[in-house]
């Protein structure tokens, strides 16, 4: 077994590494995910692997356009969605276009046809509106809606 020239230093290094790994896991510094489903096509393919990190949200709050992971009861199964509306905003769908406070939202990531028409909904102070990039299916077959800030685990890193 190789333990280095100075076993004490090696032990300290191993302990520091172990602590960093535990902290990294606990605070969702970097977490591997595998996509299941087609709701984020064409940006994220079914069965593709990515990373999620909470680090960007240590410095700023989640932004519009961020692809994020949202936890359920825990972080072993999460939703992968995109933020389209921020706290306090009103969101609606008209002829497949997203309206934020009545203004059309430019969405370069949405490339599949969409014909949704849904009434306006105002978000609370702690709520983000999330939806998948693939809205080619009827809205009732797509999981989307308001996510509380404390359910947002981190941003998806390509």
């Amino acid at each position: 077994m190789v333990i280095g020239r100075n076993p004490k230093v090696t032990l300290i290094r191993a302990a520091v590494l172990a602590v960093l790994c535990i902290l990294g896991y606990h605070f969702n510094t970097l977490r591997g995910i595998r996509v299941e489903g087609i709701s984020m096509l064409p940006t994220y393919q079914d069965s593709s692997a990515h990373f999620v990190s909470a680090v960007p949200y240590w410095w700023h709050e989640p932004q519009r356009g961020d692809a994020i992971s949202i936890r359920m009861a825990g972080v072993h199964e999460m939703y992968l969605k995109r933020i389209i509306a921020l706290p306090g905003e009103t969101v609606a769908f008209a002829n497949g276009r997203v309206l934020i406070n009545g203004e059309v939202l430019d969405e370069p990531y949405e490339k599949l046809p969409c014909d949704w028409n849904l009434p306006p909904e105002k978000l609370g102070p702690n709520e983000y509106f999330v939806v998948g990039d693939n809205r080619s299916m009827p809205p009732e077959n797509h999981t989307f809606g308001k996510a509380e800030r404390d359910h947002i685990v981190g941003e998806v890193i390509r």
Partner: peptide
């Protein structure tokens, strides 16, 4: 409902 919505 993890993602709640009146729209949904």
């Amino acid at each position: 409902r993890t993602l709640s919505s009146a729209i949904l």
